[in-house]
Write a protein that binds this DNA or RNA. Structure first.
Length: 271
DNA sequence: CTTTTGACCTGACAGC
DNA sequence: TGCTGTCAGGTCAAAA
């Protein structure tokens, strides 16, 4: 489920449920996630007030009094507010139990997600310190992309999905943003002009912002509810539309594989 | 340094 | 029905 917009929506959805709360304990049913969940997680977090909930890239950061929880949803993770005594499903691996009888429950079938704990400056954590800028920040613009891409021969889509270049652009939004920018996903990143990067930066910002808005309206109860209904009903321009007709030129959408990820594009609109 | 490949996991689905 | 193969929203680590 999680590209940047969904992590952002999750963050916004959880925040009011955490505000002013204290963590009573942590329940770890399965510690085998992307990295092992710290064995002493419960002792580390017990009794601490939740001071804030923020997002950096696709990481959710739960600021406690004496450290920070780093949560990642991987490919299949979700976080929901539940009654702490409600029965856990097979893929409900971790609960952060709050002092009002609720918990934040991590469900993650594929277990590519993560729950980590640090007592140091979280932004200096090895997983976070070398990340690129947030795509919705002012730092992310044509000049940034143009400068960082010089000398790079990777396809622009691969370049965009590299979190050390810019965070939060997953496979769906890389495809969609390149369509909106009129750029062929296979183009070498180092050969794109500044003008084309200006169009691309704008397309990325607009695509992500629109998705967050859509998530905000269709997933308002995401954190509390049973599902993510509505999110996928949005109209993609290219993603998953192989062989269907382009919504702009009516040409046939093509599919190819870059790395091990699916790429979709319109050969007429994207040059 | 850059680029490519493999790895981690489960579930859904197509085709036989 | 049941098996096999493929694919899925991420991203690190190792190899080339």
């Amino acid at each position: 489920m999680p590209e940047l917009p969904e992590v952002e929506i999750t963050c916004r959805g959880l925040a009011p449920h955490c505000a002013g709360r204290r963590i009573v304990t942590a329940v770890v049913r399965n510690a085998k996630l992307r990295w092992p969940v710290p064995a002493d997680l419960a002792q580390q977090v017990a009794g601490q007030a939740v001071l804030g909930l923020t997002r950096r890239a696709k990481y959710l950061l739960v600021t406690l009094q004496r450290g920070t929880l780093i949560l990642h949803l991987g490919m299949s993770g979700s976080l929901r507010i539940m009654d702490s005594d409600s029965p856990a499903g097979v893929h409900d691996h971790v609960d952060l139990v709050l002092d009002n009888g609720t918990c934040i429950r991590l469900r993650d079938p594929r277990r590519f997600g993560a729950v980590l704990w640090t007592q140091s400056d979280v932004l200096r954590h090895p997983l976070l310190e070398n990340l690129g800028p947030e795509p919705l920040s002012s730092e992310f613009d044509d000049s940034y992309l143009y400068t960082r891409s010089r000398g790079r021969n990777v396809p622009i889509k691969t370049f965009l999905m590299d979190s050390h270049m810019v965070v939060g652009v997953g496979n769906i939004y890389a495809n969609e943003a390149l369509f909106h920018a009129g750029i062929r996903p296979t183009t070498s990143a180092g050969r794109l002009s500044r003008v084309r990067y200006a169009r691309l930066a704008a397309a990325i910002r607009a695509t992500l912002a629109r998705a967050i808005e859509a998530g905000g309206s269709t997933l308002r109860d995401f954190v509390n509810s049973a599902g993510e209904a509505g999110y996928f009903q949005q109209q993609y321009m290219v993603y998953g539309r192989e062989g269907e007709s382009c919504r702009i030129c009516a040409g046939s959408i093509r599919h190819l594989r870059q790395g091990q990820r699916s790429t979709f594009y319109c050969p007429r609109c994207q040059t």
